[in-house]
Design a protein around this nucleic acid. Structure first.
Lengths: 198, 198
DNA sequence: AGAATCATACCGACCGGTCGGTATTAATTA
DNA sequence: TAATTAATACCGACCGGTCGGTATGATTCT
């Protein structure tokens, strides 16, 4: 049957995600993954051609997860600032439960910087997000809810802020309520910090 | 003499930095470092007790470099927004020449997430920067050049944005003029994106 | 001379991946 | 339905090779 097979496959994936995020990709041995998954090494290499293949599958799975998360956000027909704020708090709430996901994203980045395969898999959705935000901002400018800023630049700032907060969540466990933290941060970006002239 | 000794030490450090940033910490072997430095393994372990010690020395060296960079910025007595903008463009210009430094920062982060020693060495300056920015913002609020925002929050946003841009510079080689990119991004954060109600 | 500096040879642990073989399940046949 | 065959899922010992680190000898300085 396929049931058992699929189960062990998932076991391997889950165990690998756990270990990669805790110990790191390089430092995690295939044997450890097999151990944690309660699976033999043979089974591992029956399901995946290599350790990297597991890694790539995790990467793609996570990325498509984010994608679908954004997709759901689109139907709402508020004005652009509200949409962005909503997305921020959604992403923020993702952080909350993502004590396994976040470190592995860091792992993705690091690996991407060394391996062209991982790089391509990571850069594509990154560009997608950026151009998506750019068009969103453009739309906001058109509808008059946003200032006539450089949309590309603003999109980069948005993504940068998100990424930066992601990194921060790894190193600052003190903030627990990322939901509001993300929202407030985005509000700050929207409204600006400097005192308005006049 | 100490000259020769110090020279080989630096050779090792430089070679290690190069390789760590290109290949990654784990994937880089001590033998490779020695090769690239034109030094024997014996010399390596004469100067450093372990591979990690080299890594830590690089980390501390870089961090103190940033520190001193910020230190220099302080004497200028403009108002706070101008100081922040100036810091931004300074940091941005750092990005420019930092094709070796940036990847190694990523390496630092990743290692810090796995190794408590690295973590402590990395988190301390991080907190320093954050509290420094917080007090700077507080000062700006006091002098009336900034809105009465939550200084801690704004500081986190500032740092997040910087970190995010740093990550972005790794993956978006298209932007070449990080000097102005950083400045414009910071201006955007200062002025806000949303159209003012007025 | 003798201490500091560097080179060479080497060790044991470990790693990703392979392979021959076994158990389990699905498909086929009668 | 029961028996037989074929295919798939899984096992775990094992291999070549690499790694960080050490021991020891050569060389260079003061």
């Amino acid at each position: 049957m396929q049931h058992r097979s699929e189960e062990t496959r998932n076991h391997i994936l889950e165990a690998a995600a756990q270990l990669f995020s805790k110990t790191g990709y390089d430092a995690t041995g295939v044997a450890e993954i097999c151990d944690a998954a309660g699976v033999s090494k043979g089974a591992f290499y029956h399901h995946f051609p290599s350790k990297q293949a597991v890694f790539m599958e995790l990467l793609n799975s996570y990325l498509s997860g984010i994608d679908s998360g954004f997709q759901m956000m689109r139907q709402e027909d508020n004005n652009v600032p509200q949409i962005i704020l909503k997305m921020a708090s959604l992403v923020g709430s993702l952080f909350q439960t993502a004590d396994i996901h976040l470190p592995i994203f860091l792992e993705f980045w690091t690996q991407a910087n060394h391996d062209p395969h991982v790089w391509e898999a990571a850069i594509a959705p990154y560009r997608r997000y950026q151009s998506y935000f750019a068009s969103l901002i453009q739309e906001g400018i058109a509808e008059g809810s946003l200032q006539p800023v450089d949309a590309q630049l603003a999109a980069r700032v948005l993504v940068s802020l998100a990424v930066g907060m992601l990194m921060q969540s790894l190193f600052d466990p003190q903030i627990t309520d990322w939901h509001t933290e993300a929202r407030q941060s985005m509000e700050l970006l929207m409204n600006g910090i400097a005192r308005r002239k006049e």
